[in-house]
Design a protein around this nucleic acid. Structure first.
Length: 365
DNA sequence: TCCCAGTTTCCTGTTT
DNA sequence: GAAACAGGAAACTGGG
């Protein structure tokens, strides 16, 4: 039916030569007179009770006119090299084919951009692009999050493949795929590459965390000096403070995400908020660690550092007090606050509180 | 080469 | 007493 509408009705009633308002009128006339059945099939009322006119269908049909997902050339290219057609085709494959979203809910025309532009979009920018006046905001946000995640999974995979080609003997955090993280035994799947997006430089630390306690080359005392006396042999290996020497320099990569950005990303991600971290007072940027060790573990996972603890992580957080990126919240334990120089943490749904319609239609969440 | 920002580790002391 | 917090110190990295 959709195909029929796209190929016939749309072409007939929505001539490209006509100005948009006229075409919308035509479509409404068409809908009222003849095509209620079609309209009902495109937007089943039980799923979209808020849809009361044909404009939604109209706008999306318009989108289809501009959009021809015929190409699959994106499959053999890196995101960076996609042209606008390939970007749109990938969006279709990702959102519709793979994740089963309704094709009429995706404003494809907003995604007629190059892969280079797409990969530089932030999560909220993707959300903005996905928003459409005639599509439910929560639905758009859900699609956008899916698209964003899949995009960064793909980018991660591209980097991983390049990394394997360049350093086949080395294992980096990028070996963590999008469906589970090697060595991470938790219910949480930190597959949101936004959390890792710019963390490529983190793999410079990979050697850091591979120091074996028995390694003669690493027999440093706690004061950082070499020592080989009996006491040190008895004591378990104690890593000296700071980053050990010997990290291999590689290609220049973007600087890692900072601790405040990492926290912000967790708080804006439904998979982590409110299960392990949540907003205490979103208007003030206050948040609470629900499972501080899990957050630290995620940070360590991202940094390829199995030794990360909340104690160390919180020290990194406290470092940001001095620049007012974070501010302390006295008296409240495990509660911190973004400062005036902190990252943008705006969201219209802190802690992902279910809206009424979602509660009434749990199958749609 | 130097400096700075950011991070990690260790540590001591304080507060809850 | 344990956990959380605060912050100094040192060592390191990447970037300007």
């Amino acid at each position: 039916m959709i195909e029929y509408a796209r190929q016939n009705m749309c072409d007939f009633y929505l001539s490209p030569a006509q100005p948009a308002p006229a075409r919308l009128d035509d479509f409404n006339v068409f809908k009222k007179g003849n095509a209620t059945f079609t309209y009902g099939n495109l937007y089943p009322y039980e799923m979209y009770p808020e849809v009361e006119d044909a404009s939604n269908v109209y706008y999306n049909l318009i989108n289809f006119r501009d959009y021809r997902p015929e190409t699959d050339s994106w499959k053999s290219k890196v995101v960076e090299d996609w042209n606008s057609d390939e970007t749109v085709a990938w969006i279709y494959d990702c959102a519709i084919t793979t994740h089963g979203f309704n094709e009429l809910d995706v404003p494809f025309h907003n995604f007629r951009i190059s892969g280079h532009e797409l990969k530089n979009k932030r999560r909220e920018e993707i959300v903005d692009m996905m928003l459409h006046p005639h599509v439910d905001n929560e639905m758009s946000r859900r699609i956008a999050y899916t698209v964003f995640d899949r995009l960064h999974c793909r980018l991660s995979e591209e980097i991983r493949q390049q990394s394997v080609l360049r350093y086949p003997e080395q294992q980096t955090f990028l070996d963590l795929d999008c469906h589970g993280n090697r060595g991470y035994h938790s219910d949480y799947k930190p597959n949101d590459i936004s959390l890792m997006s710019a963390a490529d430089s983190g793999d410079d630390h990979e050697d850091v965390f591979r120091i074996e306690p028995a390694s003669p080359a690493c027999s440093y005392g706690s004061d950082g000096s070499k020592s080989g006396d009996e006491d040190d042999k008895k004591k378990p290996f104690k890593r000296p403070p700071g980053r050990p020497k010997g990290s291999i320099k590689k290609d220049k990569r973007p600087r890692s995400v900072s601790v405040p950005q990492f926290l912000r990303d967790l708080l804006l991600d439904e998979r982590f908020c409110p299960s392990i971290i949540k907003w205490e007072d979103h208007s003030q940027g206050k948040f609470r660690f629900v499972k501080p060790d899990e957050v630290a573990k995620l940070w360590g996972q991202m940094k390829q550092n199995d030794n990360m603890t909340f104690e160390k992580f919180s020290r990194a957080m406290r470092y940001h007090y001095q620049h007012m990126v974070l501010v302390s919240v006295p008296t409240a334990r495990l509660v911190y606050q973004f400062g005036p120089k902190g990252p943008d943490f705006k969201t219209n749904n802190p802690n992902f509180v279910k809206v009424k319609s979602e509660l009434e239609n749990p199958s749609y969440s």
